[in-house]
């Protein structure tokens, strides 16, 4: 992948984020619209780059830290677009796109070479496992962002952000969709593990923490029915949940020995 295109992509997202930032102080609708158009352009470019890497490699190239950060960033941008088109969240996008910039910024200095595929990864189940996993993570990241904004809105009562019921609705939707997709990731991963290693669940640290992520968000899907927890507690849980996700994705791969290493 050309580093120039990668930097161009980063610049597009940076401009979009700056546009949203500007929109907070200079509330002209064309600023927000321009930012949105930039994000759409960024997503199209990122999709093309990802598609090209996939086509060139012959498999979904998400096997090292650069590739996972890039894919996560793409999934997060798509997730943002989904919520923007559905709810017109505008200013809420600032926080999500900042998170996206962190992910893409983390990928920029890394080697973009597509590594050779380990034979055990050469199965459509791996691609499904990865796609569902990172799109699920993206929804959890969205829920984290919305959770933070919910707490801000609860304190500030500002017109810059959507009202609390809308934020709550988006948060619950993000958790629900993220949980569903992450569940599909776990199913695909278990079937793959069974045919690749002969067991559908193993007590390695990555599998254990993936189950923890699943249980945490399964708990959250139930917690929304507890009246006292709706809103504020749920927002805090969204933030804590993303901490568990980050440890599962980055902490285990980078800090601990696992069968899902990140290099």
């Amino acid at each position: 992948m050309s580093k120039t295109l990668l930097y161009l992509l980063f610049t597009i997202y940076l401009m979009a984020t700056s546009g949203y930032l500007l929109h907070i102080f200079w509330r002209r609708s064309f600023v927000a619209k321009a930012s949105f158009v930039l994000i759409v352009a960024g997503v199209i470019l990122q999709t093309a780059l990802l598609g090209h890497r996939w086509w060139a490699a012959g498999y979904l190239p998400v096997t090292n830290l650069f590739a996972t950060l890039f894919f996560f960033s793409w999934a997060l941008a798509l997730t943002y677009l989904y919520f923007e088109l559905r709810y017109r969240i505008r200013a809420t996008g600032l926080f999500v796109m900042l998170l996206n910039l962190v992910l893409l910024g983390g990928a920029l200095p890394r080697d973009t070479t597509v590594s050779l595929l380990i034979p055990a990864l050469d199965t459509p189940l791996f691609s499904l496992h990865i796609i569902f996993s990172f799109v699920g993570y993206a929804f959890f990241a969205m829920a984290f962002s919305i959770g933070v904004l919910y707490l801000c809105q609860a304190q500030l009562s500002t017109e810059l952000l959507p009202d609390l019921p809308t934020l709550r609705k988006i948060n619950e939707e993000a958790i629900f969709l993220g949980f569903g997709l992450f569940t599909l990731c776990m199913v695909a991963g278990s079937i793959w593990a069974h045919i690749a290693w002969g067991h559908w669940f193993s007590w390695n640290i990555k599998s254990v923490w993936s189950v923890l992520v699943w249980m945490f968000y399964a708990g959250m899907c139930h917690a929304k029915f507890i009246r006292r927890w709706q809103g504020g507690v749920y927002a805090w849980l969204s933030i804590a949940g993303f901490g568990v996700v980050l440890f599962t994705y980055l902490g285990i791969g980078l800090l601990l020995e696992s069968n899902h290493p990140l290099e």
Binding site: V208, V211, L212, M215, F216, A218, G219, H222, F225, I226
Partner: peptide, 17 residues
């Protein structure tokens, strides 16, 4: 009970963490 479900899932989560 929903609360029991959350309590058990939380206990299992914390123990396994």
């Amino acid at each position: 009970s929903l609360k029991l479900a959350i309590a058990l899932a939380s206990a299992a989560t914390l123990l396994i963490m």
